[in-house]
Design a protein around this nucleic acid. Sequence first.
DNA 1: TATCTCGATGTCAGAAACTGACATCGCTGG
DNA 2: CCAGCGATGTCAGTTTCTGACATCGAGATA
Lengths: 192, 192
Amino acid sequence: MGRWEPNARGRLQKAALELYAERGFDATTVAEIAARAGLTERTFFRHFADKREVLFGGSQAMEEHLVKATVSALAQEPGPGPVEAITAALAEMADELFVGEHRSLARHRHAVITAHPELRERELIKMASLAAAVAGALREHGISEPGASLAAEAGTAIFKVAFERWVSAPGDRPLSAFIHETAATLKSVTGS
Amino acid sequence: MGRWEPNARGRLQKAALELYAERGFDATTVAEIAARAGLTERTFFRHFADKREVLFGGSQAMEEHLVKATVSALAQEPGPGPVEAITAALAEMADELFVGEHRSLARHRHAVITAHPELRERELIKMASLAAAVAGALREHGISEPGASLAAEAGTAIFKVAFERWVSAPGDRPLSAFIHETAATLKSVTGS
DNA sequence: TATCTCGATGTCAGAAACTGACATCGCTGG
DNA sequence: CCAGCGATGTCAGTTTCTGACATCGAGATA
């Protein structure tokens, strides 16, 4: 047994999500989160840059997954359009990361985030970072600007709308289904 | 002559933009901004909710303008698709708000904002608020969900990309030209 | 085994962001 | 003339976030 309980980072994430849900984001202090996790405030800030970041630990993995899936979708035959490729990548990522227990976790997280503007801000910049990464991947595979950025932005539009509908939908229809459906709607709304 | 110099709010905005540009966002304190404007820190926070908000005083006007323009575009004959309507609205708004001295101001502002993640966050949530307002207008004019939200998101995608290109383009080609061009690219990238 | 280094955490002090309560004092309406 | 309004000032306090240094178990090494 080590000098400390293992998984400090995970304990902080769990404590933060619980407290934000119980009392609201503004009404919980970092000291309280740390205390619930059996740590100190200073340690919280060693693991997370600020009070918001603690809810976004998974976005790194999401970005890597998405970039990889985009590249692989781009390589399919017959060559899909950029948005088709991103749609496929989003769906694959969703089937990987938004299933099982992640499902209810994602919903709890989303409820907390939408309740607080500062957290929504952080979520938006994570999405933008995702879009930038995807746009970079597209550029490296022959899609030129401004098409690459636009396709990536279209991808985030699809994801945002699909995720919103998935979260508020009853039952257990997979997120990927909403993604495909939403992508089709975007197509119809974009064409005259 | 009143008890105080007039236009405290404007002086704060000017001082903040200057200082953020000179020293960077992190390196300037609210007390310094207030001092340059001949006011106190407490007064700064009466005019602006936080240190970032001082750069986004115009977004209210932009939102109102855009909603109005969207509604009027929707009423054109022959009835345009949702994204066509938003594109027209964006272009009209651009020709109204991003000309003359606003042009260089917008560029300075944008340089400061892109240099600091916290400011980019704020800009993103302003865009999201814009998109929500436009989506609401679309819904009130017969566009159902998820089409309304998707079209609004497509609009922000167009604006973000077009604005980026406009800002970094030499010469004085109007923003509205970039908007129309970008909208066409989105169409081509979305269709297979 | 004895010791050394490393890394995660703790402790402490301090700057800066933000808030609430109350004071000030020209201007304006009666 | 005066009462009250409203923009600003003053002050104290909480919270976020950072830098500097201390602690101490674990694994490596002689």
